[in-house]
Design a protein around this nucleic acid. Structure first.
Length: 570
RNA sequence: GCGCUUGUAGCUCAACGGAUAGAGUACUCGUCUUCGGAACGAGUGAUGUGGGUUCGAUUCCUGCCAGGCGCACCA
């Protein structure tokens, strides 16, 4: 439709002998102002010394003379000189029909067709608690994965996990001190216990120099692997925490294709560094460093191999990148989602990689999100004031269970739905806003079910589903041709879904989808309140049912893109 | 100190250089003999601050103020 209107405007301008290269045609913010709008008259009025409003009037006269399109109902001048296009009843009926035909494929596009994309996100560390920051990374990464997938990309999901390092030694020290958890504990409880041991060890490490020595000693043994007792605890704890993570991923709706472990990246990275000493890396104070400021004054020097001859995280990241491109040959894009605190250092690493492998240079995309913070200050697993992912998910599920009193469910079904709704509340609270900014964590808000929330979207979907069940029972079939004169607000939103998806994907910003769905749900709920949808006495009933189908398809697809399940009842 | 980033209603967030700056929440009032009240409708209430560019600035440039992150052997 957009193209048709653009052509119409171009033809009109040509007939008026007005030359213009390009102009904006967009949706006005307010539905009352029409469905499309152009600022063309405002933009060129000055250069041709005309009053914008008069100019707009002239253009509209010409447009009306040319317009033979049955989809355009009315063209008018408004405000300072905007030209607004109102689409016709027929257009909206057709758009509903199109949605019904495409069902859950409506909104798919081919902008990334044939592209191979890997998305890396979540990155929890074995032996450490899975805290809400990981939940945040997971929500964003999963949504971005689904967006690029929906745009035709061959998508894989990757998780990079720190299986070595001081944090492991701290946890093992804690386990040795406090003893192993009781055997009858669930896996989740054991993982939580390991997390507590980590926090304990981390705290002591800072305060007691003697314990610091003990932990450093364990750390060496974790690397050398020559102490059977340490090895046993290590592999036991590793398995427990990794399994506990899997339980969480299942609940969150993520299925990773690749797991990369930090320990495996060290040697690969070291080789790359060694091959490039003198070219890109240089020696400085006994360490091997990369002086990035030589290439870009906004970057800084970072150490890749310490003076103790140990590879740093930077070097492992180098190895990881090489490994990714090896794992997925001919990869077109590698997306990494992390917290913004890693932005500066990732820029340096990215610079080093693009010097070593110029062909990877434009195939890497680092997306940073803000941090979850408490109103009282920063949270950290070391401080022990971090909220774990499990506890938040469990609390959310319990809060939802209390509300689920009206419907009939089997116990299993009830648990599943409560979990899905809880996940939705948390994910939505992260995805509704621009990624990049910090999120002030508030328990009540993160599990809110009212208004601007994930459960509100799911509720609207479930409600629409009930309407459709009733329509089936009363044998009212959807008919997109049986429309009444009135044009409903929902229709004016539904046809825009594909553009929203496209923009969200292009900018890697799921919040456009989230905000759109809220608007859509509100419009549908309002429609629901003002209309009896299933009503044998109403000639338009079959159209209203068709509209409800269209709404439910778009809502379900949209929720999917946010990584949220749409239950049929809740 | 340098670099990056953020500042919008009491609170949490929107607004691809456009029209009367939108939502939710909180507060006040209203809707319910209807298909799911986790709902619908109405009201109160905001662009940190000084310049500049523009027909038009929350958006772009710039000074200041305030938060956050990063700045060599941690990850």
């Amino acid at each position: 439709m957009q193209e048709e209107i653009k052509k119409l405007i171009k033809d009109a301008l040509e007939n008026l002998n007005i030359e213009v290269s390009d102009f904006a045609l967009e949706h006005p913010a307010d539905l009352k102002m029409g469905d499309f709008s152009t600022n063309i008259a405002l933009a060129i009025a000055k250069s041709i010394e005309r009053n914008p409003k008069e100019l707009a009037e002239k253009i509209v006269v010409e447009i009306n003379r040319l317009n033979a399109d049955k989809n355009i109902e009315k063209v008018e001048v408004a405000g300072a000189g905007f030209i607004n296009f109102h689409l016709s009843r027929k257009f909206f009926g057709k758009s509903v029909e199109e949605i019904l035909n495409q069902a859950e494929s409506f909104g798919k596009n081919k902008t990334l067709e044939g592209k191979k994309i890997m998305v890396e996100y979540t990155q929890p560390n074995p032996f450490k608690p899975f805290h809400i920051g990981h939940l945040m990374s997971n929500a964003i990464g999963e949504s971005i994965s689904r967006l690029v997938e929906f745009s035709g990309a061959d998508t894989s999901r990757a998780n990079y996990q720190g299986d070595v390092g001081l944090h492991v030694a701290k946890a093992i020290w804690g386990l040795l001190k406090k003893g192993l958890p009781e055997e009858h504990f669930s896996n989740t409880a054991k993982a939580q216990y390991i997390g507590e041991c980590y926090s304990f060890g981390a705290g002591e490490y800072e305060t007691d120099p003697k314990i610091k020595e003990e932990i450093d000693e364990i750390n060496k043994k974790v690397y050398t692997r020559d102490d059977k007792k340490i090895n046993d605890i290590y592999s036991w704890g590793f398995d427990i925490t990794m399994e506990a993570f899997e339980d969480l991923y299942r609940m969150l709706g993520t299925k990773f294709d690749f797991y990369f472990l930090e320990s495996a990246m060290a040697d690969i990275g070291r080789d790359i560094v060694n091959d490039n000493i003198g070219k890109i890396f240089e020696e400085s104070d006994g360490a091997i460093v990369f002086k990035a400021e030589k290439y870009d004054p906004k970057l800084h020097t970072r150490v890749f191999i310490t003076s103790q001859n140990l590879p740093t995280y930077e070097t492992k990241e180098l190895g990881l990148t090489a490994e990714k491109f090896k794992t997925e040959p001919n990869m077109d894009l590698s997306i990494v989602v992390t917290a913004s605190e890693q932005m500066e250092y990732m820029r340096v690493v990215a610079k080093a990689i693009s010097l070593i492998h110029p062909e990877f240079g434009n195939k890497m995309k680092h997306i940073t999100h803000g941090m979850m913070r408490l109103s009282t200050g920063k949270m950290g697993s070391r401080k022990g004031n971090a909220i774990t992912g499990e506890s938040l998910l469990n609390d959310a599920r319990d809060a939802i269970l209390e509300k689920m009193t009206d419907r009939e469910f089997s116990n299993e079904e009830r648990e599943k739905v409560a979990s899905d709704v809880g996940v939705s509340a948390i994910k939505y609270s992260v995805l509704k806003q621009n990624i990049g900014g910090d999120i002030v964590y508030d328990f009540d808000k993160s599990i809110s079910v009212d208004g601007d929330s994930g459960p509100y979207l799911q509720y609207s979907y479930a409600r629409a589903n009930s309407v459709l069940e009733k329509a089936q029972k009363e044998n009212i079939l959807p008919d997109p041709h049986a429309f009444p004169d009135e044009i409903f607000e929902v229709e004016k939103l539904l046809y825009k879904f594909p553009e929203i998806v496209e923009r969200s994907t292009k900018e890697y910003e799921p919040h456009y989808v989230a905000n759109y769905l809220i608007e859509l749900a509100r419009a549908y709920n309002s429609f629901y309140g003002n209309n009896m949808i299933v009503d044998k006495a109403d000639k338009a009933s079959s159209y209203k049912v068709a509209l409800t189908y269209a709404f439910s398809f778009v809502m379900k697809t949209g929720l999917h893109l946010l990584g949220i399940v749409a239950p049929k009842k809740m």
